[in-house]
Design a protein around this nucleic acid. Structure first.
Lengths: 147, 147
DNA sequence: AACTTTTATTTGATATATCAAATAATTACA
DNA sequence: TGTAATTATTTGATATATCAAATAAAAGTT
């Protein structure tokens, strides 16, 4: 089993990068809104943009439905959200951002923008585009192989 | 807050790819060695290659030391490893793979190789190299910003 | 209408992530 | 040499990941 091959290092790098980015994001988010997690911040902003069911949000940010249930639960306990049954389809859930949640979103927006800018400093659009394509190719490979 | 910008999609893609790869890996590993996780498999192989302390392994695979403690604990419970105090420096720990662990490693090696090959199918060395550079740039950006 | 299948969400069990604080051993240095 | 600073690991608390199984409601079928 070889390490330090282009194959393995490239795959490790993906993991390394996402962790570095998450740490940076969490640090900067915490400085503005203590006690909210990166995931919760993102979910809050997604709900704010557009009404979505839990499962739709989960699909959007690559979360398991079970995880989503628990994250939403915590977000309700923290008073960022409220939850109601969707009367049109009683299996579904309607999520609504509280006033408190709204104000948190406003605080978070510039931080999230800044995080992205910092992370992508000196990365050209071509580089980004190229990376995106390669990542998608790998994702496709993995998903196809699982069917 | 805009989504679907090159900026945000590229960063999401990193997360998506690593999750897709982890799922594929876990599925194929579970088919050969039930009950072992991707992380545990990787750690086992690292220890097999070279003696390392927990912290060194943690650094290598981007794990928190606290996480490492718990993963090692589980691996010992599962009889993949044994643990002893390093008498040269009693703060440190020596990890040793059991016979059982050794045989598991042999079963895992081809699976891990195959996972990598599948994930990187049709991805050229140039693409891989380019992605690696971009990812490293992003990682650097995030790490520098945290200091 | 009764029955089956599908869909959305939840729950249980176990593993990992993260931060802060605690332990315990080692090293630096006044 | 004694004490402070550093290093390796652990523990506690809380959040998230994942799989399997359970619920509950809706949709499809006969």
């Amino acid at each position: 089993m070889k390490f330090n091959t282009p194959t393995s290092t490239a795959l490790y790098a993906i993991e390394e990068t996402i962790k570095a980015y998450r740490r940076l994001s969490q640090q900067n988010i915490s400085a503005v809104v203590p006690k909210i997690t990166v995931d919760q911040a993102l979910i809050l902003i997604i709900i704010d943009r557009e009404d979505k069911t839990q499962s739709e949000i989960a699909d959007l940010i690559f979360k398991d439905y079970a995880s989503m249930t628990r994250i939403i639960k915590l977000m309700i306990e923290k008073k960022y959200l409220t939850k109601m049954i969707d009367e049109a389809d009683r299996r579904k859930t309607k999520l609504k951002i509280t006033t408190n949640g709204k104000s948190i979103i406003e605080q978070l927006k510039p931080v999230i923008q800044k995080n992205r800018a910092v992370a992508l400093n000196n990365v050209s659009d071509e580089e980004l585009e190229q990376m995106y394509k390669t990542l998608n190719k790998i994702t496709q490979n993995c998903q196809i192989a699982r069917k």
